[in-house]
Design a protein around this nucleic acid. Structure first.
Length: 152
DNA sequence: GCCAACGTTGGC
DNA sequence: GCCAACGTTGGC
């Protein structure tokens, strides 16, 4: 799951422990949250649009999907006048903090790795803010951190 | 800050 | 339902 640190960082998730992943206004990303995600699913937390784009830590899904309430709030920048409470358009899940990496796995690192470069996040032109990650890729990201001395 | 590559919107 | 125009994302 991608987030710009200027709008919501891993440090804020660490402090708040849990957050509704609101503001997603892309149908594909919504569908992943609404249709695919389950409680306890693990999440790679990624900082985008920053000096060094990178996976900066781990999180997990800690709610079922439910309507994003910002879509009903006319004062919110995520307000969607076409959405109704009877038929909400946007759904989200709650995301809970697990841990922050001592050293992030940068997009540069990912692209330099023969396997990791196949990840959706490394594909050209992909802007999707919620993406599927295979177990192999997930584990490989986590493994990379253990191999670094700074983690210990 | 640039701009390519997207997704969305809305006129027709 | 097409598609041009527009807005956004996000790496660089």
């Amino acid at each position: 799951m991608k987030s710009e640190p200027s709008s919501f960082s891993i440090d804020r998730l660490k402090a708040e422990k849990k957050t509704p992943w609101d503001g997603v206004r892309n149908y594909q990303a919504r569908n992943f949250m609404r249709n695919e995600m389950q409680i306890e699913d693990r999440v790679l937390f990624y900082h985008s649009n920053t000096e060094i784009p990178a996976v900066v830590g781990l999180a997990k899904i800690c709610s079922e999907a439910y309507p994003d309430k910002t879509q009903f709030d006319s004062k919110s920048k995520y307000f969607d006048p076409k959405s109704t409470k009877e038929r909400p358009r946007w759904y989200l899940v709650d995301v809970c903090f697990v841990r922050k990496f001592a050293v992030p796995v940068s997009l540069y690192d990912i692209k330099a790795d023969r396997e990791l470069r196949k990840m959706v996040v490394a594909q050209r032109g992909v802007r999707l803010s919620v993406q599927p990650v295979s177990k192999e890729h997930f584990d490989r990201i986590v493994e990379r951190r253990k191999s670094l001395p700074s983690e210990s």
